[in-house]
């Protein structure tokens, strides 16, 4: 077990390092460097950057040095000082802008993941055990539909229905009164009132996918000889089902966190833009459109790190649950 954990940890660190290089490349991609766009922005607003400030910035980001030096300056700043660079669009350090948004993204993704599981698990089991029943057909159809409808389309349609027929404004995560308020019980309650719709939109895709995975896995297990043996030994159907085949079928279920999470984070970005949620999505989009690259790169780095760490957790969970993985 220890060896397995160590190996996974090494992989995770390697992946994180590679992710950081990719995020840095994204920062570097737009033509011209950060400084040219920065001074262009400044000139646009009527001010001119004096040469002292320019040299200071140049020194800070190592802009006249080769890319690996720039990369090192950037990543060491993040690792050792928590300094993600400067957002020239907001004239603020990136770290100040990012954490709130990022926290909301983690919260939204986490809740959605839990909801996805709670819904998909029992439905998947039912669908497999009562295969070809009418409910199975309904679920299968809805599953296909859930996979085919882009999340932003679902969000748009729901927003339209709610504002047109119920006169509700469903964008954002807080009522206007609470947006800038301090955290309190009332604010949490307000959040809960707003959260269910984004969670519903986001969970649809993952739930549809997981139901299909669960159903297929369980059907593979249900007709294996060991199930027959257990039945022949007089084990009750319910006890049998949950004691053996469901447990085996759950394995891929947990390993899917690895791919549900990247999908979830991706879906959350588009949906957040549509529903104007205070998560990473809208800020990332505006940063990209304005070529505010340190902000955009930091978001890409942190979102990727989130999924990489999520995958690590799912791998470890799987190893803990299934000895075959540990000793492979």
């Amino acid at each position: 077990m220890l060896r397995y954990v160590l190996r996974r940890l090494v992989y995770t660190f390697a992946t994180l390092a590679a992710v950081s290089v990719v995020a840095f490349l994204v920062i570097q991609l737009p033509p011209g460097d950060f400084l040219t766009s920065f001074s262009a922005k400044f000139a646009e607003q009527g001010g001119a950057l004096d040469s002292d400030a320019l040299t200071a910035l140049k020194l800070r980001y190592g802009l006249d040095q080769p890319w690996y030096v720039q990369y090192w300056l950037w990543i060491s700043g993040i690792l050792f000082r928590g300094d993600f660079g400067e957002s020239f669009e907001w004239n603020k350090p990136v770290s100040e802008l990012m954490w709130d948004r990022f926290g909301m993204t983690v919260l939204l993704s986490g809740i959605t993941l839990i909801v996805t599981w709670i819904v998909a698990l029992p439905i998947g089991i039912y669908s497999a055990v009562r295969r070809y029943s009418w409910l199975d057909y309904v679920v299968t159809f809805l599953g296909f539909l859930g996979l085919a409808v882009p999340s932003f389309l679902l969000a748009l349609a729901l927003m339209y229905v709610f504002s047109r027929y119920f006169g509700m404004s469903v964008s954002g995560l807080f009522s206007p009164a609470y947006v800038n308020a301090e955290w309190s019980l009332a604010k949490v309650g307000d959040l809960a009132m707003h959260l269910w719709l984004p969670v519903f939109v986001l969970a649809t895709h993952g739930t549809a996918a997981l139901i299909r995975v669960m159903r297929a896995n369980l059907i593979d297990e249900l007709y294996k000889p060991y199930v027959q043996t257990a039945r022949a030994n007089g084990l009750g159907e319910m006890e049998l089902l949950f004691k053996y085949p469901v447990r085996v079928a759950l394995n891929p279920f947990i390993s899917t966190i690895g791919w549900v999470l990247p999908n979830l984070v991706s879906g959350a970005i588009v949906t957040s833009v549509v529903m104007s949620l205070p998560t990473a999505g809208p800020l990332l989009l505006s940063a990209l459109l304005a070529q505010d690259m340190y902000l955009a790169g930091s978001f890409i780095l942190m979102l990727s790190a989130l999924t990489v760490i999520g995958t690590l957790i799912s791998d470890l969970l799987l190893a803990w649950l299934d000895p075959r993985v540990r000793y492979a």
Binding site: Y11, T15, P262, I269, V308
Partner: peptide, 20 residues
């Protein structure tokens, strides 16, 4: 493994935004 672990939309957004 590496490519799959990156959330696709942010990566695509970053790359697509760089298209002039």
């Amino acid at each position: 493994d590496f490519l799959k672990s990156i959330p696709t939309i942010p990566l695509w957004m970053g790359l697509a935004a760089a298209v002039p």
